[in-house]
Amino acid sequence: MVEANSKSNILMMKKLLIFTLIMFVFGYALVPFYEKFCEVTGINNLLQPDVLAKDNRVDEDRWIAIEFDANVRGLPWQFKPLQTSARIHPGEPINVMYEITNNSDREVTGQAIPSYSPRFLDKHLKKFECFCFTKQVLKPNETLQMPVQFVIDSELPAEINTVTISYTFFELPAGASPVKK
């Protein structure tokens, strides 16, 4: 009786330990699942070029003022847009150049992360090209000019007439894999 009991106890413990292990792996599996989920639903799409909707039209009656902002966090770079602001119609494509200079004597890899104000601008901002889609590698004292090409669609709420587009460069550790996807 006691023997049989302790045997079935150990069987139960093994089952529960395997279950624990599965849940631990599940915790890690949430990471690719989360990325896939964001990709499929189009939430948090930072690294893929957008496609312009077929029914895009230029709203000639409206003007939107855009301010460009550039920051670096923890790398020896100088980073600035070549124009600080622009005025465009919704639906009209625009090309803006940014410039980065590596002020140090070593090769540095960085990744730009965009940030918008107002926050929901990302729903209306269609980017076709951006230096933020990939990592950027700069040789010592190199200067690089890079474009961002986008459209702000005419669905942008009418009360918004000024938006800010900001990029911050973060340093990637040497040898770090480029941004996923």
């Binding site: 949430l30 973060f170 550790p173 770090a176």
Partner: peptide
């Protein structure tokens, strides 16, 4: 050197919140 939650390395801090609250 992993970047599960480091935006610069392609991670996502909001994902931490989802897993934590799960």
């Amino acid at each position: 050197g992993t970047s599960f939650f480091n935006a610069a390395g392609g991670g996502d801090p909001v994902m931490f919140q989802h897993i934590f609250w799960f």
